[in-house]
Design a protein around this nucleic acid. Structure first.
Length: 456
RNA sequence: GUGGUUGUAGCUCAGCUGGUUAGAGCGCUGGAUUGUGGUUCCAGAGGUCGCCGGUUCGAAACCGGUCUUCCACCCCA
C-alpha cells in the first residue's frame, strides 16, 4: 500500500479560499506598482549557480537550493574527492544550477544581460516565488513569494521618497494600518565604524548592532567584544545607544557623533532629505522612523536601508525590506549603475491580514448565483439564461445533477453562493425566475431583465 | 546548520503511572422533510494512534531512529 502522499517541509498547498485571498493581495500590489510606473518582468525559477553563489554571504550559500545535474552527475568527481567527503568542493561539480533565492540578484543579472534593450532609468516590478533551504517557522517557509519594485539607473533620492510612498500606498490599500517603515543608511553605519576605528569589522559590527532591541545593550557589547572589536571602540559607541527622540532629533545627535566622517555625514544628509520630503508630502497610514541599529539585509546595500514591521499587535518578523545598492550590477560587469528597491513578503502579509481579519468579505465570493436543477427540460431553460447572464459578466452556475432540492441548496450554502435561482415548470410558463437571497431567505419572482440588474 | 517541541477520525482535541472491541465535539452520509439551505431530532460511515524498529505476556502510551509541526538561535520576507 502506498503511504499517505505528502509535500516537502516548508511548502504548502493552497485551497480555493486561500488562493483567492492571496490573489487579492497580488492585485493590490500589482495595481500599485503599475500606478507608480513600474513595468513587470519575470525571470527563470532557476539560475546558473555562479549567478547566485557568493551573492548572499556564507549563510546565503548554505540556504540556496542546488539542483543536481542531469545524467551521470558523479562523472566529474574524482575518487579522492569522493573519499574526502568534502561536500563544498563536490557541490560545484555535481550541481550547476540553483533555485532563485531572491528577486534582486536575478534582476541585476537581467539588467546586465539586457542593458542594450533597456531604457534607463528602468523601473521594474516582479512577483514570483523564491526558495530557501531554511528551517521552517511561523511566517518562514522554504517556498514563498516576493513582490519587488526596483529602479536602476538613477541616483536620485526621489526614488527613495517614491518607494516609501509605495509602501504606504500598498499597506493603506490593504487596510493594514500603523505599519512602521524603518529607515537607516549604510553610509551612517560605515561612518560609525570609521569614527570608532573599526572599519574592517563593519559587517560584524552591524550584525551585532542590529540585535539591540532584541538582546539589549550589554549583550550587543558582548557580541562586539567576541568579534574582536576593541573596548575603546565600544566606549565611543556610547552615544549611539542613547539616540532617541523624533527622527530629526535622532539625526541631530548622530551629526555630532559623525562630524569627523565624511561618509557618515553624507548618509545623514541623504536620510535628512528623504525624511524632510516625506514630512512635506505626508504618508497616509504608515509611520516612517529612523532606526540606526537597522543593519539587516544584504551586504550589497550602500545607501538607504528599509525594513517594514507589521503592526505591533501581531508578532511577525518583517513584512518587507529593501535598500539602495550602488554596485550590484558591478558583480556582473556593469559599472556605475545604481539601483534602489523594496520587497514585500506576500506570505507574511497574508498571515498578518488573516490575524487581523482584514480581508474584505467580498473576496471570497466566487459564484454569484446557482440555478437549481429540476431535470433536463428545466435545465435547458436555465442554461439559456445562464449564457445570457455570463455574457453580462455575472458568474453563475447550474447544479449539474437533478437531485433533491435540499442538497442543492446546501451546496449553495456551503460554497457561500449568495443567490439561488429556481426555474421550474411554473417559472418556465411565465418566463420568470424565482430569485432566493440565501442570507435573508427572501424570494422574489423576476423576469430576465430584472434578474440581470438584481445580480449585477 | 544547533537546541527543544509536536504528531490519535476530515478538523479541534481527550485517552490517568503500559491492561479487553481507542473516545468526544464539530464536520461528513442517509432519514424525519418528493419546490427550499443555515436550526432541531434520529441513524450511520470513518482510525494499521505519523512511519520503521526495539523493550514487554501485552504498547497509542516506554526506548531508539526517521519524517512532520511549531519554537529559540543563526539568518531572513
Amino acid at each position: 500500500m502506498a503511504s499517505k502522499p505528502s509535500i516537502p517541509k516548508g511548502t504548502r498547498d493552497f485551497n480555493p479560499q486561500e488562493v483567492v485571498k492571496r490573489n487579492y493581495i497580488f492585485d493590490v500590489m500589482r495595481k500599485a506598482f503599475k500606478r507608480y510606473g513600474f513595468q513587470p518582468i519575470e525571470t527563470p525559477s532557476f539560475e546558473n549557480s555562479e549567478t547566485l553563489m557568493g551573492k548572499y554571504g556564507e549563510e546565503g550559500d548554505r540556504l540556496i537550493f542546488k539542483i543536481l545535474n542531469s545524467g551521470d552527475y558523479l562523472k566529474k568527481v574524482s575518487d579522492e574527492e569522493l573519499a574526502a567527503k568534502d561536500s563544498a568542493a563536490i557541490t560545484s561539480k555535481i550541481s550547476e544550477k540553483a533555485l532563485r533565492y531572491d528577486l534582486t540578484v536575478p534582476f541585476a543579472r537581467y539588467v546586465v544581460q539586457h542593458q542594450n534593450e533597456i531604457t534607463f532609468p528602468f523601473k521594474r516590478y516582479q512577483i514570483q516565488p523564491v526558495w530557501r533551504a531554511d528551517r521552517p517557522q511561523k511566517g518562514r517557509f522554504r517556498e514563498f513569494y516576493q513582490c519587488d519594485a526596483d529602479v536602476v539607473g538613477s541616483k536620485s533620492l526621489w526614488q527613495e521618497v517614491e518607494l516609501v510612498q509605495l509602501y504606504d500606498s500598498v499597506f493603506t490599500n490593504l487596510r493594514l494600518r500603523n505599519t512602521v517603515i524603518k529607515m537607516n543608511n549604510r553610509k551612517i553605519l560605515s561612518g560609525i565604524a570609521e569614527v570608532i576605528g573599526e572599519e574592517d569589522k563593519l559587517i560584524d559590527f552591524t550584525v551585532a548592532l542590529d540585535k539591540l532591541d532584541k538582546i539589549g545593550v550589554e549583550k550587543v557589547k558582548d557580541e562586539m567584544r567576541a568579534k574582536g572589536i576593541s573596548e575603546a571602540a565600544i566606549e565611543k559607541l556610547g552615544p549611539l545607544f542613547n539616540v532617541s527622540g523624533s527622527a530629526l532629533e535622532k539625526l541631530n545627535s548622530l551629526k555630532s557623533l559623525l562630524a569627523s566622517s565624511e561618509t557618515g555625514m553624507k548618509g545623514i544628509s541623504e536620510l535628512e532629505f528623504i525624511l524632510n520630503t516625506i514630512d512635506e508630502i505626508q504618508l497616509k497610514t504608515a509611520q516612517l522612523e529612523i532606526d540606526v541599529t537597522l543593519a539587516r539585509g544584504l551586504n550589497y546595500y550602500t545607501g538607504a536601508i528599509f525594513e517594514v514591521g507589521a503592526p505591533a499587535e501581531v508578532s511577525m518578523g518583517s513584512i518587507g525590506g529593501g535598500g539602495r545598492y550602488d554596485d550590484l550590477t558591478g558583480i556582473f560587469g556593469l559599472k556605475d549603475m545604481s539601483g534602489v528597491g523594496i520587497s514585500f513578503g506576500l506570505d507574511r502579509i497574508y498571515l498578518v491580514l488573516e490575524e487581523l481579519g482584514l480581508f474584505p468579505e467580498t473576496v471570497l465570493e466566487s459564484t454569484r448565483a446557482l440555478f437549481v436543477n429540476f431535470g433536463n427540460k428545466e435545465a435547458m431553460y436555465a442554461m439559456r439564461t445562464i449564457n445570457a447572464l455570463r455574457e453580462e459578466g455575472i458568474a453563475v452556475d447550474l447544479y449539474p445533477d437533478e437531485t433533491k432540492m435540499g442538497k442543492q441548496m446546501g451546496y449553495a450554502d456551503k460554497r457561500g453562493i449568495p443567490f439561488v435561482i429556481l426555474a421550474g415548470e411554473s417559472e418556465m410558463q411565465s418566463r420568470t425566475y424565482t430569485l432566493k437571497n440565501m442570507k435573508t431567505g427572501e424570494q422574489q419572482t423576476l423576469d430576465i431583465d430584472q434578474l440581470v440588474s438584481e445580480l449585477k
